[in-house]
Simulated assay, not measured.
Amino acid sequence: MTAGTEQPELTSPGTGTGIDAAADAARRVIESLLRSGDRGGTDLDTVADRLNAVADDLDRGAPDLAARMVHMWRGDGVTRHDPVTGPENAIAPPLHLTGCEDGSVEATVELGLAHQGPPGYVHGGMSALLLDHTLGVANHWAGLSGMTAELTLRYLRPTPLFTPLTVAAHQVSVDGRRIRTSGSISADGRECVRAEGLFVATHPARPR
């Protein structure tokens, strides 16, 4: 794929209905539970019963796991279920990546309590997850993608919560099946985390 001038979105924007709306609601529940803790005025035992009842309803109507896996991977479009950009995955922020004219990809996201590590800052593992995925999307945008073989991160400064973060990446070089890609997470114009990745141009078979 060649980068164009329209800066297309490379991840699903979500529909706002159905499973996407339910996942949005689940994200809100996760954040609200963390915000409330056990010192709020809400009866959390009752909340747990209500949430378990919702989960029971979902389980009763769920398809066979193998069938669901096939459905998840149908077609050749952008996946909707991954833990970084998937609108139907409640643990995804989600990140909305766009392709830029210079061949890079970029997104802005704000993370809350669900992604906290040190007090007031993003967990380092969450930063690694965001960057691993963003580097992979940068490879797809550049025209050759693959599986992560090596990911090296430098944590330059703590990454703040409740602050717009810029997550960006670009493909650096291709040598046969070996792809090198770099990226970063920045806040207020300052790099917080820098990543260098080595990818191998291979893909596992999709469930059938």
Rank of each mutant, 00 (worst) to 15 (best):
M1T: 05
G4S: 14
T5F: 10
Q7W: 09
E9L: 07
E9H: 03
P13K: 01
P13A: 12
P13S: 12
G16R: 09
T17P: 08
T17I: 15
D20N: 09
A21L: 15
R27F: 01
I30T: 15
L33Q: 10
G37N: 00
G41V: 00
L44H: 09
D45Q: 03
T46W: 14
T46H: 11
T46S: 10
V47T: 08
L51Q: 03
A53R: 06
A53P: 11
V54S: 06
D57K: 09
D57N: 11
L58N: 02
L58F: 01
A62W: 06
L65E: 08
A66G: 07
A66W: 05
R68H: 11
V70K: 07
M72P: 00
W73P: 01
W73G: 05
D76P: 03
G77D: 02
V78F: 07
T79G: 15
D82E: 10
T85P: 06
P87Q: 05
P87I: 14
E88S: 11
L95R: 08
L95I: 14
L95M: 12
H96Q: 09
L97D: 11
G103I: 11
G103W: 05
S104W: 01
T108E: 07
E110S: 11
G112L: 10
L113Q: 07
A114D: 00
P119G: 10
V122M: 07
L129G: 05
L129C: 10
L130D: 12
G136E: 03
V137T: 10
V137Y: 06
V137P: 15
A138N: 03
L144Q: 07
S145C: 04
S145L: 09
Y155W: 04
Y155L: 07
R157A: 12
T163G: 09
P164H: 05
A169L: 01
H170A: 05
H170T: 08
Q171G: 13
V172D: 11
S173C: 02
D175F: 06
R177G: 13
R178Y: 04
R180L: 01
R180E: 01
T181D: 04
G183F: 11
I185N: 01
A187P: 15
G189T: 04
G189M: 11
E191D: 10
E196T: 12
L198P: 00
A201M: 04
R206S: 05
